[in-house]
Amino acid sequence: MKPNTQSDLLKPTNEDTVGPYFPINFSDPLLEDLSRFESGITAQPQGDPIILKGRLIDRFGELANGTLVEFWQANAKGVYRSPKHEGNSDIDPWFWGYGRLRTESGEFEFKTIMPGPCAGRAPNITITLFSDGISRIVTQIFFADQAGNASDPLLQSLSHEDRAKLSARHEGESDCGSKIYTIDIVMAGENEIPFFDDLIREGE
């Protein structure tokens, strides 16, 4: 029988900082552009290609260089590619929804498709940051021009001021016609954006 009470759980290995030298040679271009599938194959993820341009900013307004940024999102129909949804006919075979890049400067450009709305949610992308000086911080960002933001349960749990900080703005189109969204992810200090605790539950 598997242990299932809090006290039976094994004690986890401590998360630790990724440090400044995450190997650049571990980069995978396919994880930096989810708007396409592997080259040489007649296949295209469903949905509207977008480019998310972000700046990671520290407490002093400087760019947070050398940061590893990870993305997790639903496909165009609002379905996450997880075992829980295996067999769902709305799974897009050409879209995983997990992305990763390391930004040398602290600015990044992530190519993907606009996530669809899941039940009761506004379109969003979960963003995880690993960098020197911190272990792991997690947030979710939204799109200012998308329907459903006003009733999204996560946004509703925040003040108006904080909601705005998680909202990427539509700023033009790329040469290929992808909508460009921009977001400043302020990690600390004035204008710090909300980060979320995925280890502690309400009431625990």
């Binding site: 407490r59 996450y80 911080i137 749990s157 600390a188 710090e192 980060f195 539950r201």
Partner: peptide, 19 residues
């Protein structure tokens, strides 16, 4: 320089899986 100064926010249970 990089550690958030505010407490982490709790995730409403209904959206937890999306994280």
């Amino acid at each position: 320089q990089r550690t958030p100064r505010n407490r982490l926010r709790l995730i409403p249970e209904i959206v937890r899986e999306s994280f």
